[in-house]
Amino acid sequence: MGTCLGSGDKHYQTFDGLKFDFQGTCTYTLAKYCGSAATLEPFTIDEKNANRGSQDISFLRVTNIYIYGYNISIYKREVGKVRLNGVITSLPVTLKDGKIRLYQKGLSTVMQTDVGLRVGYNKNWHLEITLPSSYYGAMCGLCGNFNQNPEDDMMSSNGIKVSAIMVWAASWKVQDRDPFCWHSCQENCLTCDESKRDLYGDDSHCGVISKAVGGPFRECHSTVSPENVFDNCIYDMCLNEGNKTILCVVLETYADTCGDHGVTVYDWRTPSSCDESGSWYSDETGGNGTNLTVSPIDGGDGHLHLHHCQVLWP
């Protein structure tokens, strides 16, 4: 049996006992079955880290487990609950005819499987992954290869042995739609705290872009994916301290793109308080809420990109 640990301000220990510290704030693959035996159930465990006040300190915010066709997400702040394929679900839960059991044990959310894989994560940022010996030598990721030799744990995702922890971790980065994440922050790194992301992601801000039921862009989603537009909107709003003129420009650009594809777009100006000029208006003042103008930047590829907007002061 082997155990991989992640705890506190991102202290790790692999299945083979290699200890290391890493403060990256992206999503990384911790443990993945990389063998070929048909008798072993494949799985992947990722973790998403986040900043905790200081740019020098990160902590584990969410654990994603992919097994038996499920995406099981355990969030730090959702005690007694998990997300099954994105849907918040109260514990306990039994899946796949008992092959997966999810339950709360004290401060920990626990997943137990019939193949012997056990994952426990508690609200004090402590993660514990336990594997049976049947997976011996068949693992990869930041938890190592589980062969009782810590000297060869630092294998990159393309199978090359590396000596630098940051290089090793960066090779196991998973795309997570977080433009603010970093592997190593020296100083003045861009950040956007979770409360601001929640605010800018609501239906009166960037959330209107991806709103499926009753949303103004709902008929466009299958033609022009809202994901990147939404992510870039959050990014712009964070960088510009919630300036709503930025929001109006992003929404107008998405609306125009949808229109170019012949897709019907419903009223988006009213819920987002954007006037016909693309500026934000305030009901309290009866006029524009800001006197800023926004210019998209030429990305050098023949297209204009709004995700790095310049704010021009008159």
Rank of each mutant, 00 (worst) to 15 (best):
C4Q: 02
G6V: 05
Y12K: 14
Q13R: 15
T14W: 03
K19T: 13
F22K: 04
F22N: 07
Y28S: 04
I45N: 09
I45H: 08
D46W: 10
R52H: 09
G53N: 08
G69L: 04
I72V: 15
I72R: 00
S73K: 07
N85A: 00
T89R: 15
V93E: 07
Q104M: 07
K105M: 07
L117I: 12
N122R: 06
N124Q: 08
M139I: 06
G141D: 04
N145M: 08
N149C: 09
D152Y: 03
S157A: 14
G159A: 04
I160A: 07
W172T: 08
K173R: 14
D176W: 03
C185P: 02
N188K: 08
C189K: 13
D193Q: 10
K196Y: 15
K196F: 14
R197A: 10
R197F: 06
D198C: 09
D202C: 14
S204E: 13
S210W: 00
K211M: 13
G214L: 11
R218G: 00
V224S: 06
D236C: 07
C248K: 05
C258V: 02
C258L: 05
W280F: 13
E284N: 14
T285G: 06
T285E: 08
N288W: 10
N288K: 11
S295R: 10
P296M: 06
P296L: 09
